[in-house]
Design a protein around this nucleic acid. Structure first.
Lengths: 153, 153
DNA sequence: TATTGTTATACTCTATAACTATA
DNA sequence: TATAGTTATAGAGTATAACAATA
């Protein structure tokens, strides 16, 4: 084909009938990684979604709920319940924006910060274990490629 | 490109507060790709899951329901409903295994084959569009890396 | 005794629409 | 008129346990 390296398609270790389908591989890899993260978060009474919201609340991005919804690809109405839960547990807070009183900037409390730090470590470990077959450079490469698929379209 | 940046972490185009988290990128990329595939499959009255089962039924792997469940990371009880639906629509069939009468090999009918062919084309187009920012080589690279994360752990 | 397929059930997640308060 | 947040609700997806037939 197009001047390529050697043959037409390398198609390494075939991984079954759908092994060439990127959407399927994405779904399965996501399921694997999600299960690992979910197990790691159980100790903190967090789910993947609430962890993500807590991480955004604890970042310096100062996102409002709509921005969180877009970033996580959730419906705004789902973010309400997630923030409610974190707020009830004293981990996050809704900070009213003085310039636009319709919006709430979601921030994290001191407790939220420290729980996030612990949870983040646990997730990173689980992630590392789930991606054990990859070298550091390969993981960076994967991260780079995924970022473009996840955000450029 | 292989010259690499010899730094500790390249961390290219930052994609927000979670842009360095592979699990998050996996989730978001999967959401993007899934939405594209889902939209493409609507015309065939298929969902991502039923499409996947139909694709396996139409392959030469001759999988039974438990194998399908493992491959798609679904519970066996969920596969029952999916196969039921495809069978009712005349797209797939349960072929009893003479050597082990407990198992059903899920196969596709002629109708199923032709619907699968059309659906596969539509999905491939949607997939291609969703991965437009990537070159052919990058897509192969992504595919290769994902395959290892999805199956080696 | 273990496994395949099945049923039933409860739970979570998701999608949609409507409502309020602000802009 | 449009947007951020909220509420309510129905539907889709998921997890679990139990059961029958077969190994």
């Amino acid at each position: 084909m197009e001047g390529m390296t050697q043959q037409t398609a390398p198609v390494d270790v075939d991984a079954g009938p759908l092994g060439g389908d990127v959407s399927f591989l994405l779904a399965r890899a996501n399921a694997v990684a999600g299960a690992a993260a979910s197990a790691a978060l159980k100790a903190f009474d967090l789910k993947v979604r609430s962890y993500a919201v807590l991480a955004l609340a604890g970042s310096d991005a100062r996102m409002n709920q709509r921005e969180i919804a877009e970033y996580l690809r959730l419906d705004p109405s789902q973010v309400v319940a997630l923030v409610d839960d974190l707020q009830k547990r004293g981990l996050a807070a809704r900070e009213p924006d003085t310039r636009d009183r319709r919006t709430n900037v979601v921030t994290s409390t001191t407790e939220g910060e420290s729980l996030l730090a612990e949870a983040r470590t646990a997730v990173a470990e689980a992630e590392h274990r789930a991606q054990a077959p990859l070298t550091r450079i390969e993981r960076d490469m994967l991260s780079h490629l995924l970022r473009r698929v996840a955000f450029d379209s």
